[in-house]
Amino acid sequence: MMTNRPHASPVRPLVLLDVDGVLNPEVRPGPGWQPHRAQSPIGTFDVILNPGHGRLLLEFADRAGADLVWATSWEHYANHEIAPRIGLPELPVIEVNAHTGAAGIHPKTPPVAEYVAGRPFVWFDDDLDPADTTFLERHGSVGHFRIIHVGPHHGLDEHHLRQAAAWLASLPSSHENRE
């Protein structure tokens, strides 16, 4: 007797986005970047944003078959204050601010580990270190991942996207849901 097993569906990788240092660098790297005042969970800040980043990230995610997700202390404010200024739609948000983090681990890392639930992911961030990588490697709900360090002085650029694209292309072609 044959049984019908549901076909495992491919799992789309995630592209996790930080804001400060990644999309909002410490200094204005070039003429295409624009200053704004933006409300965050802890106050109003001056940010420098590149309106072309949205298009680049959407095209990148589309080519990679990946889903963009906010992994930033801006949390839901990123959808209202950052996304429209760079041309991104509203994205899912990993709520990271409620976590205090363990010694040596960035407070965003444990909520990210829970959120990804085995999906492969690339994380653009400027503030993670080897302890965060070790935490993710040892966490039971984390599968394949790559942290792309973005220097906070200049922010995200094509070089970072090429690194992420190469890593995503190196993944096994069929990521199946672990259900």
Rank of each mutant, 00 (worst) to 15 (best):
S73H: 04
A66Q: 11
P29T: 04
L88E: 03
T100L: 11
P89H: 02
S170W: 08
V69T: 04
G52A: 14
P120C: 04
W167H: 02
F45I: 15
S173T: 11
H7Q: 14
H154Q: 08
R85P: 10
E158N: 06
A83G: 02
L57Y: 08
H53I: 02
V47H: 00
T100F: 09
L57N: 07
I42A: 10
L17T: 06
H80P: 01
I105V: 15
A113W: 07
W70C: 00
F121N: 10
V142N: 05
L23I: 03
A166D: 13
P107I: 10
A117H: 13
V116R: 08
L171Q: 04
G104D: 10
I148H: 05
D18Y: 00
P6S: 11
N24Y: 02
S73F: 02
P107Y: 14
L58K: 13
P84N: 12
A166N: 11
A166C: 08
W123S: 00
G65W: 12
P29I: 05
Y77N: 15
D46W: 12
F135V: 00
E179I: 08
G32W: 04
L14R: 09
S40G: 14
L156K: 09
T133F: 09
M2E: 13
G140Y: 00
D46R: 15
A113S: 03
G143R: 06
P111I: 08
S141P: 05
G101W: 11
L171H: 07
S73A: 11
A61E: 09
F60D: 01
W33F: 13
D132M: 06
P110A: 03
A61D: 12
H154G: 02
I94S: 13
V96C: 00
T134W: 09
V22L: 00
P35L: 15
I42N: 13
I105L: 04
P84R: 10
D157K: 07
D157I: 10
D67R: 09
P29K: 09
W74S: 03
L156H: 10
P35S: 15
P84L: 11
I94C: 11
G54P: 01
A66M: 07
E81T: 01
I86Y: 00
V93R: 01
V27F: 13
D157M: 08
D126F: 07
F135K: 00
H149K: 12
G101P: 07
P41F: 04
H153F: 00
R63E: 15
A8M: 06
T100R: 12
R178Y: 03
L156S: 08
D62Q: 15
P107E: 14
P120Q: 02
V116K: 05
A66N: 09
Q34C: 07
H149A: 10
N4G: 07
D132Q: 12
S141W: 07
I105P: 01
H80D: 03
L14I: 04
L168V: 12
Q39W: 15
V15P: 04
I105C: 01
V93L: 02
D62F: 11
S9N: 09
L58G: 03
I148D: 04
P13A: 14
H153Y: 05
G118D: 04
V27W: 08
A165D: 13
E158I: 02
R138C: 07
I105F: 01
E95R: 01
G65F: 11
A61I: 09
